[in-house]
Amino acid sequence: MSTDTERGLRHRPIRCLIAKVGLDGHDRGAHVISRAFRDAGFEVVYSGLHRAPEEVVQAAVQEDVDVLGLSILSGAHNTLVPAVIEGLQSYGAFEDTLVIVGGIVPDEDRERLREMGVAAIFGPGTPMEETIEFVRENAPRRER
């Protein structure tokens, strides 16, 4: 068994979960980002609306994603984000998952979210290229 790798199938696309967590029903942003990520060559798992933190964690663990993008427009980020991060930690999945948040987060909350381990927060009007570039540069390259 000398050929353990198959030619051309080695490269792994960056795998992301785009998750709508909490009760807000606005998923336009999540859709737009999902499509933009796809066009950038990422593999995007989209969660659908109204996901509880534990569902998001379950999906992130099972799908073994490199990047978890949380879309939150409800203002409940201060409770939802810690719940997701703790969940990831309980599965040992936090270390190599890049957690980013998209949506409306007031300046005074941003620092706290970063301290919790959110890598970046993208507010309204962020150019798509900026987000894609950030993911490309920061997605954990744990293995190829």
Binding site: V44, V45, E55, E63
Partner: peptide, 30 residues
């Protein structure tokens, strides 16, 4: 997508039976 090689995998959207139940393991593949 045959153009970018990327994909949007949306099968989880309908998965509510799996919600929070780790005895259901769902994996999306492109």
């Amino acid at each position: 997508s045959p153009y970018s090689g990327g994909a949007v995998l949306g099968d989880r959207i309908r998965m509510s039976a799996a919600a929070g139940d780790m005895d259901v393991f769902v994996r999306s593949m492109s």
